[in-house]
């Protein structure tokens, strides 16, 4: 507090100059304000756009610059995919996948349409589910879940392998390739594989003799045994009917006799169809028992 500033109490004039005051008022007028802050920038941008579009040379220049920038980014090593890794697929499926999704490696990550690839691979029969993604190290990872073969379906034009839900897996030429699979036949049999499976389970006691199932008229099943025997099952409750036939067989050796077919289509009126000549033989035996023929 030794020196007292002589300017201490005389402040400088805070008044704005007339022109700065007018400018402030001008800038506060709403239309001009909007014009300056929105209108002029918008006009400038539109003008730049119009100039660039109308001039052919500039337009091309803009386009080439754009594509150059695009390739510069997409071709970065961080975005390239170098190889495909397939998992969970058998060799033949792997081959199929490589055939349907041909990719020239290396390729940019942005050029791969993973969704479309997935749809194409899902279109293959043996593929139940597939997961396609690009791993961080530039590897295209394809994880496949295959369908498990459950049935052989004999059709007019060959043998098809179906999975447990009746969906086509592949076509085979010989039954021997899948000799352990149960055989079904008949038009529309693939829609009723669940029932077929139940019948196969129920027919376990006849396993040695069972040849396969035939779907008749797209509504009911025939069980075909060796020696040309058939068990005609009804449309409703075929398993119950089959169990009854098996029970009869176990009790009275029904199926070892000269029976051509057991007709269970009407549950309450089962019918036996005998082989040709069996009826005559049966009559002869009866007559013999009665002593009329010696």
């Amino acid at each position: 507090m030794s020196q007292i500033n002589p300017d201490r109490y005389t402040r400088s004039d805070p008044a704005p100059s007339l022109w700065s005051y007018r400018l402030l008022r001008l800038m506060l007028s709403p239309y001009l304000r909007r014009m300056v802050f929105y209108g002029i920038p918008a006009l400038f941008l539109v003008g730049v756009g119009v100039i660039n579009i109308t001039n052919e040379q500039r337009r091309e220049q803009v386009l080439t610059t754009y594509s150059e920038m695009k390739t510069f980014v997409t071709e970065r090593p961080e975005f390239t995919v170098n190889l495909m890794s397939l998992k969970g697929a058998s060799d033949s499926v792997m081959q199929d996948i490589r055939e349907v999704v041909p990719i020239d490696f290396p390729i940019s990550k942005f050029d791969l349409d993973l969704d479309q690839m997935r749809q194409i691979i899902l279109g293959l029969g043996p593929v139940k589910d597939v997961d396609v993604r690009v791993r961080s190290s530039g590897v295209l990872q394809v994880d496949v879940v295959e369908r498990l073969p459950a049935f052989l379906w004999r059709r007019d034009d060959g043998l098809e392998v179906l999975d447990a839900t009746g969906i086509y897996v592949r076509t085979v030429t010989s039954r021997l390739q899948y000799s352990n699979l149960p055989l079904i036949a008949g038009e529309g049999a693939d829609t009723q594989v669940a029932q077929a499976k139940q019948i196969f389970v129920a027919a376990k006691p006849l396993k040695e003799r069972l040849r396969g199932l035939v779907f008749i008229g797209e509504r009911r099943w025939d069980v075909v045994l060796d020696k040309g025997q058939r068990l005609m099952l009804p449309e409703e409750d075929p398993v119950l009917a089959l169990e009854r036939v098996i029970a009869m067989d176990q009790a009275e050796d029904l199926l070892t006799r000269s029976v051509k077919a057991v007709d269970f289509r009407l549950q309450n009126r089962p019918t036996l169809q005998l082989r040709s000549g069996a009826m005559e033989a049966f009559r002869e035996i009866k007559l013999m028992q009665l002593g009329q023929i010696k």
């Binding site: 004039d13 805070p14 005051y21 007028s29 709403p30």
Partner: peptide, 18 residues
């Protein structure tokens, strides 16, 4: 006049309206 202008300007600035 300058003093009145000072007051009017700062009030208008604060109100952000002309």
């Amino acid at each position: 006049e300058r003093a009145i202008r000072t007051a009017l300007q700062s009030a208008q600035k604060l109100a952000n309206i002309r």
